[in-house]
Nucleic acid binder design. Structure first.
Length: 278
DNA sequence: CGGCCAACCTGTGCGC
DNA sequence: TGCGCACAGGTTGGCC
């Protein structure tokens, strides 16, 4: 489940395999994912050397030595697997759309059944102005994410706070799961209009958002179903969900005794405690 | 610009 | 076993 913590986990798994490494053979097996792959995708990456990996919101940025930066998004179902040089490299599986063989003999595979992911090209010196990147809000784990900035961005919005937190222009990297978790921790009802979220609620929410994402990264992401880290191991944060996916189960607030409910907002499931969250 | 919905895809799990 | 439907981690384009 690729929200910020999962993308960060994937990026950290890829970095030691790709950074400083020449790509021996890059192959794409589909013409497009969510959008067209670059026409020169294979030729431009094959023979190129990766300088550095980084993450912006849910995008992984692969900076290469010739100035190219590849922008990768995992969409809903995108996964990355790594097969070491001294291990068996499996035959291409269904929905394996891109494979990268490195000069060291490591194999990196991008698999995405729903093809909501994307890979496009930009350049290192223009990446900040790229259409996919330029309007994204502050990184929640960085210094630019503070109460004043956050409050300024939400206090005029009439939409439910749940919907506003999913908006990547407001704050980067949150998805359906971590929004539910953050609102549960903050005691804020997901349907409350963002312009009715008081400043003192924002003061709670900012560190809570930081904490929930930081904890999830430390746990190696969450992982619903069989979503795996690049190592193939599952993330463990899912075992710590307090709201997400817990419809009908007891609220875990001490002494609450209420039951987690599920509603639909903007066509997405929202899980919350009708008692704790106001 | 803000807000809302449909659309993009495939797979899975459930009720019948 | 098969069928139809609801639902799944995200984003965006079009419409009011």
């Amino acid at each position: 489940m690729p929200e910020l913590p999962e993308v960060e986990t994937v990026m950290r798994g890829l970095a030691p395999v790709l950074e400083g490494v020449r790509l021996e053979k890059v192959q794409a097996f589909v013409p497009k994912l969510r959008v067209d792959l670059p026409i020169d995708f294979e030729e431009r990456l094959t023979g190129n050397r990766v300088v550095q990996l980084s993450r912006r919101s849910k995008y992984i940025l692969v900076e290469c030595e010739d100035g190219l930066t590849a922008i990768l998004h995992l969409g809903m179902s995108g996964r990355v697997s790594i097969y070491g040089a001294n291990t068996h490299h499996p035959a291409r599986a269904k929905h394996d759309h891109v494979t990268i063989l490195t000069e060291r003999g490591d194999l990196v595979v991008f698999n995405d059944p729903r093809r909501f992911g994307l890979i496009v090209f930009s350049t290192a010196d223009t990446i900040q102005t790229h259409a996919l990147i330029k309007d994204i809000g502050p990184e929640p784990l960085g210094n630019a994410f503070d109460v004043d900035t956050f409050w300024a961005r939400i206090k005029t919005r009439k939409s439910p706070i749940k919907t506003v937190l999913l908006n990547q222009k407001v704050v980067a990297g949150l998805g359906n799961i971590y929004v539910c978790e953050a609102l549960w921790r903050a005691g804020i009802h997901p349907t409350r209009r963002a312009d009715r979220v008081r400043r003192k609620d924002a003061e709670k929410l900012v560190p809570i958002i930081r904490d929930v994402l930081t904890e999830a990264i430390a746990a190696g992401g969450s992982t619903l179903k069989d979503y795996a880290q690049v190592s193939g191991e599952l993330g463990y944060f899912q075992h710590r969900f307090k709201a997400y996916g817990r419809e009908g189960e007891p609220c875990l607030t001490q002494g609450c005794g209420s039951t987690i409910e599920r509603i639909v907002q903007s066509n997405r499931s929202t899980f919350f405690c009708p008692t704790c969250q106001t």
